[in-house]
Amino acid sequence: MQDRQAGIPSVVCLYRLCAVLYVFRVCFFLRIRKSAVLERKVGELEEVATSLRTENTHLGSLSYQDSLTGIPNRRYFKYAFQREWAASRIREELLTVLMIDIVFFKRFNDTFGHVEGDRILILVAKGIQKSLFRLTDSVARFGGEEFVVILPDMNAEHGSIVAERIRTSIVGLRIPFASETGEYLTVSIGCFSGSPDSSFSADQFVKNADAALYLAKAQGRNCVSIYSSGCLGV
């Protein structure tokens, strides 16, 4: 009887040990399962985050890119030019802006259609890009048939050389279009160069380059005009 009673605590301890082991196994299983679920959820969240980052980068590039020509758009130009204007002011360097207009583009569209007109805009954009040899130079579509070029650390003389190179490269595309300026499609270009300062805003640079462009049109188009005070009011 005593031997039987002596064995009872051992059995109880064994049962308790088994129960503890069972609970431990259940907890361990649940923890592993929970850990696996968490890992899967974390993986899914990382995939979503990566997808969102990629999409945001893509949307960001689209917001600064002209959908037709693939070059930067006017929104990007405003951002880039403000940056270059501020940098040139700090470095006390000259900054040059070119405004470019396709001659009689509306007439071209009316003659050949908008599909062909879109193709020409793409060709002209590429032609301008190929004419810019420095990494610091950039071109953007300003709107419609107008393009704008930023030339950091460059004076009017060298800016006009770049402008003339652009003009001749567009003529060199030999796009048939008979007009008052010849038998091929051409561009007019206005050039302005100045030193950025607090009394000479970034907007004034663009206005002066635009004034020079109007002078180029008044002088017969298919030419380069450099800004002077006489450009105002043209």
Rank of each mutant, 00 (worst) to 15 (best):
R53Y: 12
E183I: 04
L94Q: 15
V124S: 07
G143Q: 08
S63Y: 00
R53E: 12
L62M: 15
K78Y: 09
F133S: 13
R165I: 06
Q65T: 14
L95T: 02
L173A: 08
K78G: 05
C191S: 08
F133V: 15
L59M: 15
G194I: 10
R174D: 05
F133I: 14
F142W: 15
V124P: 02
K130E: 11
G113A: 02
I161P: 04
G117M: 07
I102L: 13
L185Y: 04
G159K: 14
F81T: 06
R167I: 07
T111N: 04
H58K: 11
L123Y: 08
A80T: 06
E92P: 03
R91Y: 11
F81I: 10
G143F: 09
D153E: 15
A87I: 05
D101I: 10
Q129T: 12
F142I: 10
T186A: 07
R165E: 13
I150M: 10
Q65E: 12
G143I: 04
S193E: 12
S61V: 13
S67E: 10
L132N: 03
I120V: 15
D110A: 00
G117R: 09
A163F: 02
E92T: 09
N155Q: 08
I175T: 08
F133L: 15
K106A: 00
E116L: 09
C191T: 15
I100L: 11
G60V: 06
P72R: 10
L121G: 08
V149D: 06
E116M: 12
A125E: 05
L95R: 03
F108H: 04
A125V: 08
N155F: 05
F108P: 01
T54I: 09
I166Y: 07
R107H: 05
I161H: 12
F177M: 02
S61E: 15
S51Y: 11
V149L: 07
